[in-house]
Each structure stands twice: as C-alpha cells, then as structure tokens.
C-alpha cells in the first residue's frame, strides 16, 4: 500500500516536473503566429466595422473562432477567400460577403468643422477649416468614423455604387 502510494506519488512528481520543464523549454514565443498572418491580410484601417476594437483584435477573434470570416466589409470577398484557406473552413459557409459601403457628405449641411477629416483613418476626407469637405470615394473604406464624428449629422453611408466598370453578369439562376 505504502509502496504503491510512493510509487504513484513519485511518478506524479517526476512527470509533473517534466511537463513543467517542457512547457518552459518548448514554449511558443509570443502569440499565435496565425494571428499575425491574418492581421497582415486585413485592411488595417482599424475601422471597427467587425465589432472588434481594431484589426488585431479581430484577427485574434478570427483565430479563436469567435468572429465570422465575413466580418470585414472593407476586405470584401477577396479577404473572405483568403481567410477561408488560412483557417481551413469553407468560404461558402460564411454566406455572402458584406456589401462594401462608402460615405458621402451632404454639402448643404457641412460647416467645415474638420472633425470628420481628423477622424478618417485613411485620409479620405478633403477639406479645410470653414470650407465644405468632400470624401474621396476611392479611398473610403466605409468605416463610418466620420459619420460618428460629424456634429451636423451630414455624413451618410451607402453601398458602393455600381458603375459600368464594376458591373458584371450575375450567376444564372439554376432551374
């Protein structure tokens, strides 16, 4: 009885020590490398449209499976595909990629306060103090930070307009 207790206890201590040492010696440096890899794929505008505070938090959530792979509207379908291959899930499982949005300013109400200009993470707002501001559509990621910052409530978001350059045939509806 005593022998058995000692044996098992000794084994427990020895294996426990081994595990403890292994955890130190073979420890993974820093965070999951996948997080870094995903973060590098993301637009990096820290827009927060995914519901996480910034792209790095979203990348962590994606790796932990807490965020859907289509959570990033500025990333679009291309990002969904890349994430699907990286994370080993099907791109179709996420459903449609969110429609990218762009912001525009209602010039009639703009007072030229420059707040949207300072909030924009991509410098897409052009304007000067007391002058009407305008948003460069090509640089806008639709993060809505300008809309939140605007005291006049004159920034609106709408889906990216379809032009002859972006229009293409839709998939035939299967019979």
């Amino acid at each position: 009885m005593l022998m058995a207790t000692l044996m098992l206890g000794g084994l427990g201590i020895a294996l426990g020590l081994l595990l403890g040492v292994a955890a130190r010696v073979f420890a993974v440096e820093g965070e999951n490398p996948l997080v870094k890899q995903i973060e590098s794929l993301m637009p990096g505008s820290q827009c927060g449209q995914c519901g996480f505070p910034g792209c790095s938090a979203a990348a962590t959530a994606l790796v932990e499976g807490e965020a859907a792979i289509n959570c990033c509207p500025p990333g679009g379908r291309a990002l969904v595909e890349q994430l699907a291959t990286l994370l080993g899930v099907s791109a179709d499982s996420a459903g449609a990629a969110p429609v990218p949005m762009v912001a525009s300013i209602n010039e009639a109400e703009c007072t030229g306060c420059t707040r949207c200009y300072r909030a924009c993470p991509t410098d897409a707002v052009v304007g000067a103090n007391g002058q009407i501001h305008v948003i460069l559509q090509a640089a806008c990621t639709g993060c809505a930070k300008c809309a939140e910052a605007c005291p006049e409530n004159c920034v609106s978001l709408h889906p990216e307009p379809i032009t002859l350059d972006t229009w293409h045939w839709s998939k035939p509806q299967a019979a």
Binding site: G75, G76, T122
Partner: peptide, 15 residues
C-alpha cells in the same frame, strides 16, 4: 475580387 484586393492594398498604404 482583384479590385477588392487592390483597394485593400491601397487602404493599407493610406493608413
């Protein structure tokens, strides 16, 4: 998709 990827790069450059 190519356009979206291009815009992504552009956004990162602007950032």
């Amino acid at each position: 998709r190519k356009n979206a990827a291009r815009k992504n790069d552009y956004t990162r450059m602007l950032m």
